[in-house]
């Protein structure tokens, strides 16, 4: 499976080291994907890297990826400019259970860049808002400058059918919002635990503590979904790098129902 060329239509700087790219297929076409799925992005002469899709599943002709420059390939992706071409393979993996969550409250807990793979889920929920109960977004970042999609979050906060709570670990000048880790938002969040589905993405430590708080609220492990991150090279289940116990994160994940991986989740270095 070889990459298809996509051209950079737009590039927005989200934070100091994170950029959002909008891509259009060279020669037309589109990419249908489910919220939570990912692509392999290929930069000519540099390499490939797995990046979750962060755009709107209802707009398959415009592919959106939010990328944080943490290594050579991600840095090269972030350096791309309007008009540049990169290769895309995908979409891969199993995403968020947005269809299964119909009729339920949905609690989205995101940490840092973990909001990127959750944004398509939120788009989906808002597009079919009447199918869901309460929808809550709890988002934590390091500082106010590290918040993704700041303007969009402001718009979401203005909606009556969406409860958005944002918190930062460290406040900086002029921040009037919450200060504290994202887990502190959980006890006060408005949802009905036995009828809620939680979608969680962030650093593994953050997800661990989030799961504990949600459990304390009475959300069962079969109602929590987390998106795992592992080294991935092929995205096809062949290269072996993304193994997480019996699971291949690329193929069986990246989104897992928590009760199915509960036994491994606490095991160190697995």
């Amino acid at each position: 499976m070889v990459p298809r060329p996509w051209r950079v239509l737009g590039r927005r700087q989200e934070t100091r080291d994170t950029f959002t790219l909008e891509l259009e297929p060279v020669g037309g076409g589109d990419m249908r994907f489910g919220p939570g799925q990912f692509n392999m992005l290929y930069v000519f002469g540099v390499g490939e890297v797995p990046i979750s899709i962060s755009g709107d599943p209802a707009r398959p002709a415009c592919l959106v990826h939010t990328v944080r420059a943490v290594g050579s390939v991600t840095a090269a992706v972030c350096r791309l400019r309007r008009g540049d071409v990169l290769g895309v393979r995908g979409p891969f993996g199993h995403g968020w259970p947005v269809a299964e969550a119909a009729g339920e409250d949905v609690v989205i807990v995101a940490g840092g860049i973990g909001l990127a793979p959750l944004r398509p889920a939120l788009y989906h929920l808002l597009a079919a808002r009447e199918k869901y109960g309460r929808v809550v977004l709890l988002y934590g970042a390091r500082t106010p400058q590290d918040l993704l999609y700041a303007r969009e979050i402001e718009r979401w906060r203005g909606r009556f059918d969406l409860d958005v709570q944002v918190t930062v670990d460290a406040a900086t000048g002029g921040w009037r919002g919450n200060v504290g880790v994202v887990t502190t938002l959980i006890p006060g969040a408005r949802f009905d635990p036995p009828h809620a589905v939680a979608l969680i993405c962030g650093p593994e430590v953050m997800m661990r503590f989030t799961i504990r708080e949600l459990q304390a609220r009475g959300v069962g492990p079969a109602r929590m979904f987390i998106s795992m991150e592992r080294n991935m090279q092929c995205a096809l289940g062949f290269c072996g790098h993304c193994q997480f116990g019996p699971a291949f994160v690329c193929r069986d994940g990246p989104v897992f129902r928590f009760d199915r991986i509960q036994g491994m989740f606490g095991v160190r270095e697995i």
């Binding site: 051209r7 290929y42 000519f44 002469g45 071409v85 290769g87």
Partner: peptide, 16 residues
């Protein structure tokens, strides 16, 4: 070898 990529005037072509 999985693929060969070439940079051309109209972007990148990838040949499996």
């Amino acid at each position: 070898r999985l693929w060969r990529a070439r940079r051309g005037p109209s972007g990148i072509t990838v040949e499996e």
